[in-house]
Structure formats: structure tokens, C-alpha cells
């Protein structure tokens, strides 16, 4: 039963970007590709040959594998309702965050490995933004561990619900912050525009300019997985008291669908920020998560 969240996330990951693209095409009145198109692209990438830059070393070839491995590893920690993930222990969300950071470290040095001016640009931005986003995640998880007295994903999520209506409010706020974190981590609008064609304004896309073939396929699939992973995390805020599977599974897919559609809508109707506004935007979410923390302090009466 511990595999259930892994399975559900894997299933979601096949459709997630497809739904985003479909939403965008509907909203802009285009016919657009089918929902499975991104997955087909990835499978094609996995099978074709690769081109490597002559400046690159083994780091460049190793990085995509490490990247996808760390995302899969992180997914193993995600619970499903009161059902533990494959791995679960006290403080597992620290492991979760640091594992993802390992993948990021490799992607950044891989892009520096090419010796390209563009990719250094992306690497620099990726490193900066992921640094800025880190505290928000830890504040939220820290607040919930204060609220519930537990320190692992599954215990926090199963103890957090149904205390009072305020916890639902906090949960919704946290779900919002998590959604934004997912957008930043996946370099989507409004922080980064995956469809831009100017290298100077890209973050994630510019980092992987030199990746091709199998490696590119892995990286693209990594984005899908990451989206599905954060979606699953968000879904955990909305389960029913009894965790009946006939409610939980539809809720899970419903949340994922809503998340994907939201991403599509945001991308259809907003423009990308100027690069130097991004840090402010990201720090804003640190302050929202501090708001959650203050709420928890008020609830538990631990405010000094």
C-alpha cells in the first residue's frame, strides 16, 4: 500500500504538461496538440541520438540521471492521505528538500560544463532563485510541525486536518504557497517563460540548451514528475476525515487537474516578470509562509 502515492504520481506525470498545454490552446482559441503529445515528445527524445559539446565532461552526461533520480527519490517520501510514502521517518521533509537540491546542484554544474555564455546565465539564475525559495518551504513545514507536534510528512498531514476551521485556512494558504513554489521550481510563469525564444530571458530552458537525445528526454520528464509531485503534496491538504479511497483518489486527481489548469490559465493571461523583479516576487512567498507561521503561533498560543 505504501506504493500507492508513487503510482498515482507516476500516472499523473504522464498527463500533467499535456493538460497545461491543452488549457493554453483552448484559452487562446487554437486547436492545439493532444494531451499525450508532451509524453510522445519525451519518448521520441529518449530514443534518438545525442549531440555533445566538445567542452563537456562526464558531469554533463551524469547530471540528467542524477536529476531524475533525486526527483524519484523525493517522490518516495510523499504520503497519500494517512498512507505513508515508501520512505518515511521523522524529519523526512528535510531529506526531501536536500535530495532535490542535489539534483539541482548537478544541473547547475552541468550547464556550466558547456562553457557557454547563455547557460551560465541560466545556471546563475537557477541557483539564486532556488536559494531564495528554500526558506519558504522550511517555514511552512516548520509551522505545521509546530502545529501538529510531528516532523514527518505523513504524520503532519494526517494530524493537521480537522482540528478547526483555522487549520483549513492555513492549509489552503500553504497549498497556495506550494503551488507557487512548484511554479518557481519548474521555471514557469510568471518567473520564467518556457516558451520564450530569447536566451537572455530564460532560466531553465537556457540551462539545457546543449542537452539532447536521451538526456533531454529525462530532463523534460523530470519537469512532469516535479509538477505531479508538488500536485500530490498539495492534494494532501484536501483529504476527507476518513481517508476512504473512493473519495481520496478522485480528490487527488481533481486537485492535480485543477493545479494543471491553473498553471495553464496563469500562463495564458500573465506576462513574465522582469528578471530583477523575480527575487522580490519569490521573497514575497517567504513572507506569506511567515504569515502561516504566525497563524500557527496564535493557534498554539506560543507567541511570546
Amino acid at each position: 500500500m505504501r506504493m500507492i502515492s508513487l503510482l498515482l504520481i507516476l500516472i499523473t506525470s504522464f498527463f500533467f504538461t499535456g493538460i497545461i498545454i491543452r488549457t493554453k490552446s483552448i484559452l487562446s482559441g487554437r486547436k492545439g496538440p493532444g494531451i499525450m503529445q508532451p509524453m510522445k515528445d519525451i519518448i521520441r527524445s529518449l530514443r534518438i541520438g545525442s549531440v555533445y559539446s566538445k567542452t563537456t565532461s562526464f558531469i554533463f552526461q551524469l547530471a540528467p540521471t542524477v536529476y531524475i533520480a533525486t526527483i524519484l527519490m523525493a517522490i518516495l517520501f510523499i504520503p497519500f492521505g494517512n498512507q505513508r510514502g515508501v520512505l518515511s521517518f521523522n524529519g523526512d521533509f528535510v531529506f526531501f528538500a536536500y535530495t532535490l537540491a542535489l539534483g539541482k546542484f548537478f544541473m547547475i554544474i552541468a550547464s556550466l560544463d558547456t562553457g557557454s555564455s547563455f547557460e551560465g546565465m541560466g545556471a546563475s539564475r537557477e541557483a539564486l532563485y532556488s536559494m531564495l525559495v528554500e526558506p519558504a518551504f522550511f517555514i511552512i513545514m516548520g509551522s505545521f510541525s509546530l502545529l501538529t507536534g510531528f516532523t514527518s510528512f505523513v504524520d503532519i498531514f494526517s494530524a493537521m486536518h480537522f482540528g478547526s476551521y483555522v487549520t483549513y485556512g492555513l492549509g489552503a494558504l500553504a497549498a497556495f504557497v506550494f503551488a507557487i513554489i512548484a511554479l518557481i521550481e519548474n521555471s514557469r510563469m510568471p518567473v520564467d517563460d518556457p516558451k520564450t525564444h530569447l536566451e537572455l530571458t530564460m532560466i531553465h530552458e537556457v540551462m539545457i540548451l546543449d542537452n539532447s537525445g536521451y538526456d533531454l528526454g529525462l530532463i523534460l520528464y523530470g519537469t512532469n514528475l516535479k509538477f505531479a509531485m508538488y500536485g500530490a503534496l498539495i492534494a494532501n491538504f484536501f483529504h476527507t476525515p476518513g481517508y476512504e479511497w473512493y473519495y481520496s483518489i478522485p480528490i487527488f486527481f481533481g486537485v492535480q487537474l485543477a493545479f494543471a489548469v491553473t498553471v495553464g490559465v496563469v500562463e495564458s493571461f500573465s506576462a513574465r516578470f522582469r528578471m530583477n523583479h523575480n527575487p522580490q516576487f519569490i521573497l514575497m512567498f517567504t513572507s506569506i509562509s511567515l504569515l502561516i507561521f504566525l497563524g500557527v503561533l496564535l493557534l498554539t498560543g506560543k507567541i511570546i
Binding site: 534518438i48 545525442s50 549531440v51 555533445y52 566538445k54 563537456t56 547563455f118 546543449d210
Partner: peptide, 10 residues
């Protein structure tokens, strides 16, 4: 794929 080409950085 074993089909690997080496070229300059993009």
C-alpha cells in the same frame, strides 16, 4: 542511443 555526435557548444 549509441549515435553520438560531438560538436561545439551551442
Amino acid at each position: 542511443s549509441r549515435q553520438v555526435t560531438v560538436g561545439p557548444t551551442w
